[in-house]
């Protein structure tokens, strides 16, 4: 996927992840998105541009409003994060499997 790098970069920021999380619940305007953050509208708009550039968010015209919505690619990107989270947990727990086996072996010898 050509904008995978952009997706990861876009997801690397907690504000942008929070914006995506909000949009996962439905469309919202910049004003609505800015409300939970102690951030100015221009700052939020800047984050939105990064998300738009990565193809994770799109905006449509609705009279004078320009609501933002999640693109399906955003959900794919989130799925990839979850898949990678699983890999990290598995890495940890595989290590723990080995550690537990070591402890049991040493106790057996003791």
């Amino acid at each position: 996927m050509q904008n995978l790098d952009q997706s990861f970069n876009a997801l690397a920021d907690p504000t942008r992840r929070a914006i995506l999380a909000r949009l996962a619940r439905g469309e919202a305007t910049v004003l609505e998105l800015a409300a939970p953050f102690s951030m100015s509208q221009p700052a939020i708009s800047k984050h939105l541009k990064v998300l738009e550039g990565a193809g994770l968010v799109s905006r449509r015209v609705d009279g004078t409003r320009r609501p933002c919505r999640l693109e399906p690619a955003a959900l794919d990107a989130i799925d990839r994060w979850i898949a990678d989270l699983r890999r990290v947990l598995e890495t940890n727990y595989s290590r723990l499997d080995a550690l537990l086996a070591d402890i049991e072996m040493n106790e057996g010898e003791a």
Partner: peptide, 28 residues
Amino acid sequence: DAATVEAMLATGMEHGMEASYKRLEGVV
């Protein structure tokens, strides 16, 4: 709240995720 769950799932709730994503970016 639900938004935090979404954000956490998106973040990778376990430590080390930022680093692993940075690494993944280099791989893909």
